[in-house]
């Protein structure tokens, strides 16, 4: 018996390591421990073993069985490993570049706009939007711009022919012309007409001037304006907002100053200068950055707010100009060419 067991084990030890595939393994396994396997048939002979020898023989058989199982397990593990290895290609060279394009980038004007909106949102402003095609009323009349004001000149503002129709841009009166808004202040008017004070909005958007395109001028460009309407809003509040905006954007050592100026829709009106230590390509102490002022009572009257109850301020600036200052860009046309080498620099 022992000799027979040893012969089976020796055979298994010799044969099983050479088994490479799962079907071959299953066949080999059947030859040993299948219903007609050699080991199985040997087991069947146990009945013929004399009773007194059975403990000894039984121990021999059990030992042999576990030895055989070890051979089988080892073979199976080898096969499973080989199967996994077969799923892999050759090892990678991790220094090769990824062939996929990317990453994507946000446009610098978007970055600057979103940063300004983020700063203003912290101060309780929400972002408003309005049409770029406007009527004379919303762009000029409601903003206290007299009918003969030079800004309304066909030389400076783009108009549409009298018969042009814009289905979803409402005019105030049938006779007025459509135009391309020259500032985002029209959004202030629409917001005030639609809602009720208190109001705090920031309106970034595209505006149009009929002008020669060069390094600092563009037929369309982007503005960002803030409007605050509440009770007891003061010049000091306006200055506080400007100080807050530019300290947030450019650092706490940034200073702003107001210079008296004139705009039809604010009174008093100011131009805003800022002084920041670390702006690239800037070689003067104060840089003009925008205009602002206290909302003119005539504008409140145009939208039906009582100027004795409500006061407010407005601030506006050019986004291209801000981006040019922040990044040290010296030609506005870069923003509209979208050279990928330009776009990649800011994201």
């Amino acid at each position: 018996m022992q000799d027979q067991l040893n012969a089976i084990l020796a055979k298994a030890a010799a044969e099983l390591p050479a088994v490479r595939a799962r079907p071959e393994f299953e066949a080999a396994k059947a030859r040993y421990v299948g219903p007609n396997g050699e080991f199985t048939s040997l087991m069947k002979q146990m009945g013929a073993v004399p009773k007194e020898q059975r403990p000894v023989v039984g121990r021999l058989v059990n030992e042999a069985k576990s030895r055989l199982q070890e051979h089988l397990d080892a073979a199976l593990a080898r096969i499973a490993d080989a199967e996994l290895a077969a799923q892999l290609g050759p090892v990678v060279d991790p220094t090769l570049p990824s062939p996929d394009a990317g990453p994507g980038t946000r446009h610098p004007l978007t970055l600057v706009r979103e940063e300004m909106c983020r700063i203003l949102r912290k101060a309780g402003f929400t972002v408003a939007d309005g049409p770029e095609v406007e009527s004379e009323y919303y762009c000029f009349d409601a903003l206290n711009t007299p009918a003969d004001h030079p800004a309304r000149d066909e030389k400076d503002t783009f108009y549409f022919p009298a018969g042009a129709r814009f289905g979803n841009v409402a005019k105030k009166t049938a006779g007025e012309r459509y135009l391309l808004r020259t500032h985002t202040s029209s959004v202030q008017i629409r917001t005030m007409l639609k809602g009720a004070p208190p109001i705090r909005i920031v309106s970034p958007g595209r505006v149009y001037r009929r002008d020669t395109s060069d390094a600092t001028h563009s037929a369309n460009f982007h503005q960002l304006e803030c409007l605050c309407v509440d009770r007891n809003v003061t010049v000091r509040d306006l200055k506080a907002l400007l100080d807050y905006i530019f300290a947030s954007l450019l650092g706490k050592d940034t200073k702003t100053r107001f210079r008296p100026h004139y705009f039809g829709y604010t009174e008093p009106s100011f131009e805003v200068d800022l002084a920041a230590s670390h702006l690239p390509k800037v070689n003067k102490p104060w840089i003009e950055i925008g205009g602002c002022g206290m909302v003119d009572p005539a504008v409140f009257e145009a939208v039906g707010y009582d100027p004795d109850v409500w006061s407010g301020y407005a601030f506006g600036m050019g986004l291209e100009r801000l981006a040019m200052l922040l990044y040290g860009i010296d030609d506005i046309r870069y923003f509209y060419q979208n050279d990928v080498r330009f776009l990649r620099q800011f994201a």
Binding site: D100, A101, G102, G104, N220, F335, Y336, N338, V340
Partner: peptide, 11 residues
């Protein structure tokens, strides 16, 4: 999705 955002003229 790896796009570069552009800004182009309206007119």
């Amino acid at each position: 999705h790896d796009f570069h955002e552009c800004v182009t003229y309206t007119l």
